[in-house]
Design a protein around this nucleic acid. Structure first.
Length: 556
RNA sequence: GCGCCCGUAGCUCAGCUGGAUAGAGCGCUGGACUUCGAAUCCAAAGGUCGCAGGUUCAAAUCCUGCCGGGCGCGCCA
């Protein structure tokens, strides 16, 4: 929840600015209409006050920006919570708030606790977030790990903004790849039975199928040889899916639903979609295949839905799947794709628009690849050849929290260099622990206070807050109030790495503060005041980490 | 060739709905533990924001062109 106090104040300020502009307009100083929404932002730098606006620079007028700003500043000075207003070259208006205002805000943070930063308003809109959706033909790799971490965090941020969000994994559990998987397993099975065998071309030659084959030999000896390819496909898929579920759950990424392509194909969804496209005249036959006129909707060329051999391309069931999402009542769809599916987006959007859904109801986020490094050495990977670092191994090596930290620390569309060596380090070179350490430290201070018999649980007294007067303390207060606005913004941009950046900054300020000042001292009231601040920091660190899916340990 | 992404400090990256002296971590140099956790803190060094134009009172941020790196352009999935 964005603090009501702050919201009300912003409204007052906006209103005052608007009145000022209207007056100037009436007096004929403005050469063009002023913007409907007057810009007002939280200042990043304390020398620019607490809030600032550049309206005076935005409008064309007969007066100089400075003169305009000075006129607007006069109105602002009348607002109760405003301490002072400064006008700076070339025309910025910087607003300084009264300390008391921040103390009230802190009080509100403490009162809200777990809820601070979360939207109180529930939105009607139902959102379906689809991510990972790796083919169940092998273990999840670190590339999937990045998507998993990101998807989970985005879902959390959307929930925090009041959306009803569901996380779904689409299982491509049928088709050519699954056939190849079955054949590959059968080959491995023959191998462990010392029979002649050959892995199909483009088959899966990774180590994991050998393991599975060994297990089959132990349990069934050679009795499975009579079974067909489908049996092996099925068996391999089932086992791999269960491993994928376990890996994700160990990574603390939990899906609300798993959607099976097999079931989709059994339903009439795909047929219906084709019929609908045909009815609208967007389907035609050429060379024995059925084509969708995607070029009518911005795609660079038309696409085949049904091949001349009468089977579907990958595209056809995928349209059926997305249509199905809408049919289940989701108004907004978000897909996380790898960079190799980048060029696929226009045709998918084209299909949905052709079916009558709004173009903006689907957002596709392209998550770039991750390259693993061991120090300076680059590790090459390939799923098919079975050369890769699995998500499982990564979690075992560095832990879920550290892995998530690195995955979330960069924007998704940037290529990620993941240094295993650095991530493994349990030392100060590893930045992953910085935020958690701040949290654990805050936790331990609170514990120390309890042992000393100092409690701030009951009857918080306003005068205590006035003892928070160091500039470091005020700076921390400022940071706390940025949090809800950050969450709100991210609900729109779907970017979560700024949270990490922010928590890093908050943790840093807290560490410095701790090193410079004594929290628990002989001065009881000052101690209480500072403990309240520590509590506020703890709340924001915890809520922020929770959104990212990173744990907040009380001890490390 | 066309499309998408990236190019900012030695390294890895933030900042990019234009704003006030370009930030962080790591690394390097020098300091801080008898007192609430040193996985921390303090100080110092380090940048033609790929290049060239343009728009603007104001450009790392917007527009155009170019250069360098990655990915994609299937009746594959």
């Amino acid at each position: 929840m964005v603090s009501d106090l702050m919201e009300n104040l912003k409204k007052q300020i906006s209103l005052s600015l608007k009145e000022g502009m209207e007056k100037l307009e009436k007096e004929g100083f403005l050469k063009a209409p002023f913007p409907e929404k007057i810009p007002l932002s939280l200042s990043v730098n304390s020398q620019f006050g607490d809030l600032s606006t550049n309206v005076a620079l935005q409008v064309k007028s007969g007066k100089s920006p400075i003169a305009l700003a000075n006129i607007l500043a006069e109105g602002l000075r009348k607002i109760t919570s405003v301490e002072n207003v400064e006008v700076k070259e070339p025309g910025f208006i910087n607003i300084f708030l009264k300390r008391q205002f921040f103390y009230r805000l802190l009080f509100s943070v403490l009162k809200q606790g777990d809820k601070f930063g979360l939207s109180r308003r529930r939105k009607r809109e139902k959102v379906l977030l689809e991510f990972v959706s790796a083919n169940p033909t092998g273990p999840l790799t670190i590339a999937h790990g990045r998507q998993a971490a990101l998807g989970e965090a985005i879902a959390n941020v959307l929930s925090a903004n009041g959306y009803q969000v569901a996380k779904e994994y689409y299982l491509n559990d049928t088709g050519v790849q699954i056939d190849l998987l079955g054949e590959s397993l059968l080959a491995r099975y023959r191998e462990v039975l010392t029979l002649p065998f050959s892995i199909p071309e483009d088959g899966y030659s990774g180590e994991y199928l050998k393991e599975m084959a060994k297990d089959l030999k132990e349990k069934y000896q050679d009795k499975l040889l009579a079974k067909g390819k489908d049996f092996f496909s099925n068996l391999a898929t089932v086992r791999i899916i269960s491993q994928i579920r376990k890996d994700l759950s160990d990574f603390r990424v939990n899906f609300d639903s798993w959607f099976s392509e097999t079931k989709l194909r059994q339903s009439s969804s795909i047929k219906n979609v084709l019929a609908k496209l045909k009815e609208k005249g967007y389907l035609y036959q050429k060379g024995g295949a059925f084509w969708f006129k995607s070029s009518l909707f911005g795609d660079e060329k038309d696409r085949v839905l049904k091949k001349s051999d009468d089977t579907y391309t990958y595209f056809a069931p995928d349209i059926g799947y997305h249509q199905n999402k809408y049919e289940r009542g989701y108004q907004r769809l978000i897909d996380l794709f790898g960079p190799d599916h980048d060029g696929y987006v226009p045709r998918l959007k084209a299909a949905l628009v052709a079916l009558g859904y709004p173009v903006n109801s689907l957002s596709v986020l392209i998550v770039q690849l991750t390259t693993l490094y061991q120090g300076k050495k680059k590790l090459q990977m390939s799923t098919r050849k079975g050369k890769f670092i699995t998500l499982r191994e990564l979690i075992q090596e560095v832990g879920a929290d550290v892995a998530k930290y690195f995955f979330l620390s960069r924007k998704p569309q940037s290529h990620l260099d993941f240094d295993l060596e650095l991530a493994k380090k349990n030392s100060l070179e590893n930045p992953a622990y910085y935020i958690q350490y701040a949290y654990a430290r805050a936790e331990s201070i609170m514990k120390f206070a309890r042992e000393k018999g100092i409690s701030v649980k009951r009857r918080i007294k306003l005068p205590w807050f006035f003892l928070l007067s160091e500039k470091e303390e005020i700076a921390i207060l400022h940071l706390l109030f940025r949090f809800p606005y950050l969450i709100e913004a991210e609900g729109k941009t779907l970017e979560v790495h700024p949270i990490l950046k922010f928590l890093q900054e908050l943790a840093g300020n807290f560490h410095s503060y701790y090193a410079k000042f004594r929290i628990i001292s002989e001065d009881k009231d000052l101690t209480r005041a500072r403990l309240l601040l520590v509590k506020g920091v703890r709340i924001v660190l915890k809520n922020g980490l929770k959104l990212l899916g990173i744990s907040a340990p009380e001890k490390m």
